[in-house]
Design a protein around this nucleic acid. Structure first.
Lengths: 194, 194
DNA sequence: GTTAGCATGTAAGGAGTTACATGATTTT
DNA sequence: AAAATCATGTAACTCCTTACATGCTAAC
């Protein structure tokens, strides 16, 4: 559960919270949700599910259902699993700003407190800003750089700047939701700390 | 050397082609070049250098230089290493469209033939287009999606679309360079196949 | 002097992908 | 009937990160 394993566990628990699922379906949803880059393999998912089963976070529902359904093991989240999810989502560590972990947490923002959301968004923003500053300062220390390298860096920098703007907008929106009046009344967050 | 290790090897050879470097400096440059996401650790770099040393791709220049310089092991590329680099850069496999590998290859495009560049760029573009189509078609199969999930997907889709446009522009530019007249005469590629 | 950064490594541990293995069910 | 896809798993392999260990040198 060293932050990497935690990301998968968090994602699985989050999905199972909505509805019980079997491994195959779970993998598809996971890949859809944050599998843009890497495709999660069964060799990764199934062992993880077994670990979580042993840990009592999920239980297996061997549902033949009578309708001559194909053999499949449906996983359902347990109260312990729910508690675990709640705990993990609140525990904002440095890994929460990392690409993978950030996306996972973001996907479950609806079940996250506003203050935690803000901590995650702002943490992510600082992280990206750091990267940007570092690269910007280290640009062309020795003579004229290669045109392709420079084009690659330009595009990368722009991508990061774009994400920074996105984050800033989100942070602003969160702050507005915290204040008394909200312009768009759709999906109000229940109630908030002062 | 299973495509991941190859990426590091390719990058190291590419950097050493320009000038001999010691491990510490090499790491800094590698992190700057494509370490936006992951930061390469010494525990990864040094063993890789030793492997390449044993393979005869690089040699160690233990240069005390007389000026009371600090102990450092400078790595220099060998003819075998140059050959290896040339071979790897030409060998465009599916891994070349992957994020990491793509960036590495792109960084050394100046030393890559135009036709190979086009294969890499077009391969990358197809790959991204596939992802995009897949995600677009799988959107909201079951009722109204979560607003944060949907916002995350929207942003991801836009990011991919942006990179697709970038790639298309680059491909266009490569084709123009292939044709007789070139608008911007700076950095002409030496000479090209028909 | 002492801290910060330069410089090179090793060992342990974890996580994930690939490839292998198997079999049912649905579609063509 | 054959092919595709559903469905679950295991084992080997690779690779990387973290933490540990050491020592020099420049700056403060």
């Amino acid at each position: 559960m060293s932050s990497k394993a935690a990301a998968l566990e968090l994602a699985v628990l989050g999905l199972l919270h909505e509805s019980p699922l079997h491994g195959y379906e779970l993998r598809k949803r996971l890949n859809l949700l944050f599998g843009w880059t890497r495709v999660l393999s069964y060799g990764s998912l199934y062992p993880a599910l077994k670990r979580m089963l042993r840990a009592g976070l999920v239980i297996e529902d061997t549902t033949p259902a009578g309708v001559s359904r194909r053999q499949r093991i449906v996983y359902r989240i347990t109260p312990a699993g729910e508690a675990r999810f709640a705990g993990m989502i609140t525990d904002v560590g440095p890994s929460a700003w990392e690409d993978e972990d950030f996306a996972t947490r973001f996907a479950f923002f609806s079940r996250t407190d506003t203050e935690v959301r803000l901590r995650v968004l702002e943490g992510r923003r600082s992280r990206l800003q750091e990267r940007l500053d570092r690269v910007r300062s280290d640009r062309q220390p020795t003579g004229p750089v290669d045109r392709y390298v420079s084009e690659l860096q330009r595009h990368s920098i722009e991508s990061v700047e774009r994400e920074l703007r996105w984050l800033t907008d989100l942070i602003t929106a969160e702050h507005q939701q915290q204040s008394p009046r909200s312009p768009q009344p759709e999906h109000r967050t229940p109630d908030l700390d002062a």
